[in-house]
Design a protein around this nucleic acid. Structure first.
Length: 418
DNA sequence: TCTCCACAGGAAATTGGGGGTT
DNA sequence: AACCCCCAATTTCCTGTGGAGA
C-alpha cells in the first residue's frame, strides 16, 4: 500500500491524541526492557546455560511450557541475548537457530523447517525426500557451524505424538552424527500436557531443565498492565478502576498477559475514538464485548466446514436448552446441517473426534460423565463460555457455506436461555 | 455376582493428495 | 514415464470400561 502524505493529512486522522502517549507499548511486538513478573523463570533458564560458560560442556536442553501469552518466548530470547554477550567476552561462538513449528505436524516437516534456517539456498521446506535424507542434511549443516548451537523450537506441541525429531536431535552427539558442534535444544510448548504425552526416553533428554510458566494471577497482571499503562497512556487518563478490572477479567480467562494488554488497548482506542478525556470501565466493558465477538469470529474462521457444522449443531442444541449433549444427540443435528449445505456426511466416530478436538481449541467444552443409565463413562458437550446466540449470529453473518443454514437454526426457543 | 450395554478412544486400513528422483 | 516418499482425514474394526439390572 502506498501512503501519499500529501493527500492524507490531519483532516482525516487527528494525530494528537488526548488519550495515548506511546501506544506502541500496547502492541504485540513491544518488548519491555524488563520482565517484572518472570524473574524466577529467567533465573531457572539461565542456570541451564551457565555450565557452558564455565566449562566446555554444551548447555542443558531446556523445556519451557505454559499457556500462550505467558512470556515464554520473550524469556528465552532475553536469556539467549545475554548468553551471546557473555560468550563474546570469553571468545566462544554461539549460534541460535529459531524455528516455529506452527504448521509442522510431523518430525519430517519440522526438520524441513529447520533446514530452511540452516541451509542458505533452501528457502522452503524440501519435500519428496526420505526423513533420513533430511536429517542427514540437517546434521551436516549443524556440524558445519562449529562452536555452540542452540536450536529453539517454538510451539513444539504441534508435533503431537510424532517425537522422532525430539528423539534424534538430543542424541546426535552420542551417535557420532555431530563432531564439531555442541548442540542443545530449547523446546517451547503451549500445551501443559504435551510433556506428559512424550515417551519417557524423550522426556528425559529433552527436559533436562523444565521450566513451567504458570498463568499470571490478577495481581501480577496488574503489575504488568501498570507498567505498560505508564508508557502508553498520558498521565491520569486511565480511570483508577480500569486496570484492576482489566486484570481480573484476563485472570479469569487463561491469565494471558497478551490478552489483558489487548483489552486495555482496545478500551483506550474506544475512548480515543469517542474523544473522551479518560478511559473508563464503561470503555473496558465495550472493549470486552468486542473482543469476545472477535474471538468467536477468529475461532470459526480457523475451522473446516465439517467442524463448523459440528459447532453449529452444538449451538443449535444449546439454543434449545438441550445443552450438555452426548455425541449421539449432536450427531443427528450435525447431519441435518451438513445435508442442508450439501456436504458429505461423516460418520459418528469422526464427529466424536471433531468434538473432542474442538474442545481443545476452546470452541466447545467437554464434560466427562460416569454412570448414567447404561454405565461406562461418556462425554457431554456444550459451548462453554461462548454465547450460543452470538455464535449463531456471527456464523450467519459470515461468509461460510453454511451461513444460511445457521440462520435457519430453530428460532423457536431462542429466548429460553437465562 | 455376572452380564451387558453404550460409549470412549486406539490401531490399522483406506482414500486421494502433495511432491520428489532417475 | 516409472517409481519413490510423505501426508492428512476418514472409516472400519476393535478393546476397555463401570454401573444397571438380572
Amino acid at each position: 500500500m502506498l501512503y501519499e502524505s500529501d493527500y492524507c493529512t490531519m483532516d482525516l486522522f487527528d494525530v494528537s491524541s488526548n488519550i495515548f502517549d506511546k501506544e506502541e507499548a500496547l502492541m504485540d511486538e513491544w518488548v519491555p526492557g524488563e520482565l517484572p513478573e518472570r524473574e524466577e523463570e529467567l533465573e531457572q533458564i539461565s542456570m541451564a546455560f551457565k555450565r557452558s560458560v564455565r566449562s566446555d560442556k554444551r548447555p542443558r536442553n531446556v523445556f519451557l511450557y505454559g499457556k500462550s501469552g505467558q512470556g515464554k518466548t520473550v524469556a528465552i530470547e532475553y536469556v539467549l541475548r545475554e548468553l551471546d554477550n557473555t560468550f563474546q567476552t570469553i571468545d566462544k561462538k554461539l549460534t541460535v537457530i529459531k524455528s516455529t513449528l506452527q504448521g509442522s505436524n510431523t518430525s519430517y516437516q519440522a526438520v524441513g523447517k529447520i533446514l530452511t534456517e540452516l541451509e542458505e539456498d533452501t528457502h522452503s521446506p524440501p519435500k519428496g525426500h526420505s526423513y533420513d535424507d533430511l536429517t542427514y542434511r540437517m546434521f551436516n549443516a549443524l556440524d558445519d557451524i562449529g562452536g555452540y548451537a542452540v536450536i529453539v523450537l517454538d510451539e513444539i506441541d504441534n508435533l503431537g505424538t510424532d517425537d522422532d525429531l525430539l528423539y534424534d536431535l538430543p542424541r546426535a552427539p552420542s551417535n557420532g552424527r555431530l563432531e564439531n558442534t555442541e548442540v542443545s535444544v530449547v523446546g517451547i510448548s503451549n500445551d501443559f500436557n504435551f510433556r506428559e504425552k512424550l515417551s519417557p526416553k524423550v522426556k528425559g533428554t529433552l527436559g533436562e531443565v523444565d521450566v513451567r510458566f504458570n498463568p499470571y494471577d490478577a495481581t501480577e497482571l496488574q503489575t504488568i498492565l501498570k507498567q505498560r499503562k505508564e508508557i502508553a497512556f498520558q498521565d491520569g487518563v486511565v480511570d483508577e478502576d480500569v486496570i484492576p478490572l482489566c486484570a481480573a477479567y484476563s485472570a479469569q480467562d487463561e491469565g494471558a498477559a497478551r490478552q489483558a494488554i489487548k483489552l486495555l488497548y482496545t478500551a483506550g482506542e474506544l475512548a480515543s475514538n469517542r474523544d473522551a478525556d479518560s478511559v473508563t470501565t464503561d470503555h473496558l466493558e465495550k472493549a470486552k464485548d468486542r473482543l469476545e465477538h472477535e474471538l468467536i469470529r477468529d475461532g470459526l474462521d480457523g475451522l473446516t466446514t465439517q467442524e463448523r457444522a459440528t459447532v453449529l449443531a452444538v449451538a443449535s442444541l444449546e439454543v434449545q436448552d438441550k445443552t450438555p449433549a452426548k455425541t449421539k444427540e449432536v450427531y443427528p443435528v450435525y447431519r441435518w446441517i451438513i445435508d442442508n449445505v450439501g456436504y458429505e456426511e461423516l460418520t459418528a466416530r469422526s464427529i466424536h473426534d471433531k468434538l473432542t478436538s474442538l474442545n481443545t481449541y476452546n470452541m466447545v467444552s467437554a464434560y466427562e460423565n460416569s454412570g448414567g443409565v447404561r454405565g461406562g463413562t461418556y462425554f457431554t458437550f456444550d459451548l462453554g463460555n461462548i454465547d450460543a446466540h452470538e455464535l449463531l449470529d456471527v456464523c450467519a453473518n459470515a461468509d461460510y457455506s453454511l451461513s444460511e443454514t445457521a440462520d435457519e437454526i430453530p428460532i423457536t426457543t431462542r429466548q429460553s436461555r437465562f
